[in-house]
Design a protein around this nucleic acid. Structure first.
Lengths: 195, 195
DNA sequence: CAGAAAATGGAACATGTGTTCAATTTCTTG
DNA sequence: CAAGAAATTGAACACATGTTCCATTTTCTG
């Protein structure tokens, strides 16, 4: 992807600055995907967003796919933290259905661009094998998270994850992002509860 | 989108030929999306695929979004028939779980490109409002189909639909398209059956 | 301080893009 | 058959794209 990290990269100011710039490019790419979708990802676009010349993007990543892979991985890591924080904040209700409905609603309302970007990158992985490991890591992380608070049955965990993906996708094409009450019936049916 | 259909369009050979060409462009667009994804959709690309000059595409559709809307709608209609045929063919088993697992497996194995294209167009609707009605029509059709053979609870129907979407998406980023046995546990958990 | 390594950024390249335009062909109608 | 409507198409437009090249600047090492 870039120059192989030498054993003494923490003291070299040149490499440190380079690493910072590399991160700036990744962050800029995520912002571009959020705003304009994957269609908006180009060398010049993300370079402008990051405030660097286009040649710098080529210097740090040898292809546009390289940038996307790095971005998807990065995004996965930071999203975990955000999700965890959101999950903590939302646990004023004690029922799982209400809590999750609230969480999903927030994802498509307060973080619509981010959520959308996530699924676009996700789907892109279906076409570009290079992105697949990053996308699957996403599933693993989410599965682990569900496993903590949910059923032990692997099939149930898989179904739950799939349902959430599907619900979010449907929510993303709604004319305006739905509130928790839209998600509740489906979630309730999923765990055999009353809404 | 095109010239408004005059009351006597069935006798005018010029308009008839035009309509045929319009359909050829839509079909070509679907093939392009299947092969190269939405990223591959351009005037020149679909023109080459359809065997017409690029100017013809502009003549029949006033924008690239117009082509996509028409394609999504078309694709929706033809997919209904194919799905129904597939559903009929697959009813040798009598259990819903096995039948559906088999059907999903076929969608990602024998019709991978088509399924993928469907979801790409679907997700694109999240960014381009013009595509949303077509995308929502998809949900309605699928919901109707599920309603015929499934539960009466609206929440359950919604959950089922969402789960299938999620399962298909996960299947699409697998290294190779999974067989029915991969879908069965999740589907079983969904309807509280043993796999 | 001199030399080397890394990073930077401006310019240029060939190619692809959406779209417009004017001329031409195809077909219908009076 | 002649007039006109509809369809067709090649050429051209201005611009965006991925990528390469090379001169310059920054930073570290001996």
């Amino acid at each position: 992807m870039t120059a192989s990290p030498s054993p003494r990269e923490q003291t070299d100011g040149r490499r440190a600055k380079g690493e910072r710039r590399r991160r700036a490019i990744i962050d800029a790419t995520l912002r571009v995907v959020e705003r304009d979708g994957i269609a908006g990802v180009s060398h010049r676009n993300i370079a402008r967003e990051a405030g660097v010349p286009p040649a710098s993007v080529v210097y740090y990543f040898d292809s546009i796919d390289g940038v996307l892979v790095a971005t998807l991985l990065e995004s996965c890591e930071t999203m975990i933290d955000e999700l965890r924080a959101l999950a903590d904040e939302v646990v004023d209700s004690e029922r799982w259905v209400s809590t999750t409905a609230e969480l999903l609603s927030r994802m498509v309302r307060e973080h619509r661009g981010r959520t959308l970007a996530e699924y676009e990158l996700y789907l892109l992985a279906a076409r570009r094998p290079a992105l697949r490991p990053a996308a699957r890591r996403w599933i693993e992380v989410a599965a682990g998270h569900v496993h903590e608070t949910g059923s032990r049955d692997p099939g149930a965990v898989q179904a739950l994850l799939a349902t959430i993906d599907g619900l979010l996708m449907q929510a993303l094409i709604a004319e305006e992002p739905p509130g928790p009450e839209v998600f509740r019936p489906a979630l309730a049916a999923l765990v055999h509860e009353r809404a």
